[in-house]
Design a protein around this nucleic acid. Structure first.
Length: 364
DNA sequence: AATGACCTCAACCGCCGCAAG
DNA sequence: GCTTGCGGCGGTTGAGGTCAT
């Protein structure tokens, strides 16, 4: 024999939003009798509600000491700090914020704080730097100014001119005179980059910011690659990497090229590995001597010796045009010193490393 | 003005530990 | 000692509001 149920399981029990009359009945009853027994309360108060529903309504909304309205910045900071220690223990967090309920804090976290942290490149679960592909560019942007080990030139989506010409033709034939060719996802990336830079007060490079803003609103096919010290240059993507017809187009098939400066390859690889992004060694190349040496000393296995031509005939940040396959090589070529050019320290024209990441592994 | 996408947050759902019966 | 409900908690939902097109 157990207890009797808190409320009837059959009909007669109201659900959904509370009316002002119901609220008043609950308030009046609790003021007069208290709320020791939620099971019997609805019947005694003349409410067609489950006891659990009454308790929730009272504790989350009607209790007189509940503080309503916007969270202050102090409260927000407290929540973030406590969440980093306690995790999703909303009731425990609420105990540190007088007048705030666990439900309110939970909602505020999910709708505001969580998103803000993500925009800032912080993982809302671990409270550590989040290095998915989206945030990576932003974070490394800021590292331009404070990391001795790694610089970001820029991560930008590649946009295929030939495909865009086809797309333009297709959209134009459908009566769309002003199609926006920058995919929404790409715009988001640009916006987030700018947002994070603003958050980090890294607005020294106004030209860069302006270019990024311009890029976000471009309606013509463009791929901007920007270095920390130079203004933008164009990369010519390899047409073969892209869909050849409008019917083949899928936004998620767009490849991305990350261009980073890095004088410590091991740290770069570790960085990616730690956050679950696999780097295909075939698509990596290092052009400065330190990176090459680091590359050669690393334990990355390379399954084949095929040249990677994915960005052959590309124009790089220094304005030069590389020969096909010259820069993007299989690791074996680097390890085995097959390319005298690449292992010649005098060959270095600029310090950068190219990484093409499998689009399926980027976590979008 | 109409429509759809997105956002917010009150309310519900389902689970768990504890305790009443 | 076992069954079952209560109270509490975190996760999720969806109605209503807002914004963008």
């Amino acid at each position: 024999m157990g207890r009797t149920p808190c409320c009837e399981k059959n009909g007669g029990i109201r659900k959904g939003p509370w009316t002002t009359e119901e609220d008043q009945k609950l308030i009046d009853y609790i003021h007069k009798n208290g709320y020791r027994n939620w099971r019997t309360l609805p019947k005694n108060a003349g409410l067609q509600r489950c006891g659990k529903s009454c308790r929730l309504r009272w504790t989350n909304y009607l209790k007189p000491d509940i503080k309503r309205g916007k969270f202050s910045s102090e409260e927000e900071e407290t929540i973030i700090k406590l969440h980093s220690i306690l995790g999703n223990k909303w009731s425990t967090i609420a105990a540190h914020l007088p007048g705030r309920t666990d439900n309110e804090i939970k909602n505020f976290w999910n709708t505001h704080i969580r998103k803000r942290l993500l925009r800032m490149g912080i993982d809302p679960i671990t409270h550590t730097t989040r290095l998915d592909i989206l945030a990576l560019s932003s974070i490394l942007n800021s590292s331009i100014y404070n990391s001795p080990q790694m610089n970001l030139l820029r991560i930008q989506p590649m946009v295929n001119p030939e495909f865009m010409r086809l797309a333009a033709s297709h959209l134009s034939s459908q009566g769309n005179q002003n199609p926006n060719f920058i995919h929404q996802k790409d715009q988001l990336q640009l916006e987030n980059t700018l947002q994070v830079r603003e958050n980090h007060h890294l607005l020294q490079d106004q030209t860069l910011i302006q270019e990024m803003s311009d890029c976000a609103s471009l309606s013509t096919p463009t791929c901007v690659v920007t270095s920390s010290c130079e203004t933008s240059k164009l990369i010519q993507p390899n047409v073969n990497e892209f869909p050849s017809s409008i019917s083949d187009f899928k936004p998620q098939t767009f490849p991305y090229i990350d261009i980073l400066t890095c004088n410590n390859l091991e740290s770069f690889v570790t960085l990616y590995d730690n956050y679950g992004y696999h780097i295909n060694p075939q698509s990596m190349s290092a052009t400065n001597s330190a990176s090459r040496q680091s590359f050669a000393n690393s334990s990355i296995a390379s399954p084949s010796s095929t040249l990677v031509n994915s960005i052959s005939n590309s124009t790089y940040i220094d304005g030069s045009t590389r020969e096909e396959g010259r820069e993007i090589r299989n690791c074996n070529n680097l390890f085995k010193s097959e390319s005298q050019e690449l292992l010649n320290p005098n060959y270095v024209s600029d310090d950068y490393m190219l990484v093409q990441i499998n689009n399926n592994l980027k976590g979008f």
